[in-house]
Amino acid sequence: MNQIPEIIRTVPLEYYLFFSTALFAIGVIGVLTRRNAIIIFMCVELMLNAVNVLLTALASYRGDATGQVFVFFIMAVAAAEVCVGLAIIVMIYRNIRSTDVQLLNRLKW
C-alpha cells in the first residue's frame, strides 16, 4: 500500500500547479462575476481550496509535513471566516431582504 504522499506524487507537480491555479482563477472569476454575496463567498472558499490542493501537493513533493499542517490551519481559519461571513450576510439579509451585493453602495466616493 502506497503512502498517500507517494500516490500524490504519481501525478506530476506541474499538473497540480496548473489545476490549482485554474481553480484559483475560477474562484477569482466567480468573485468578479457573481452578485450574490453567498456565491461570492463560495468562490472565495474555492480559492482557499485551490490553495489547499496546491499546498498538499507541494508538501508531498517536498516530503515535508509542515505544508500539510498548514492546510489544517487554513481550514480552521476558513471555517471561522464562514461563521463570521455567513453571520454578516444573514444580518444584511435581515435588513435589506436580499443578498445582492450591488444593492449595497451607500458608501462611496
Binding site: 468578479l32 458608501l107 462611496k108 466616493w109
Partner: peptide
Amino acid sequence: RFAQSGAIG
C-alpha cells in the same frame, strides 16, 4: 472620486 464607486464588484 469616481473610481470609488461603492460597488464591491
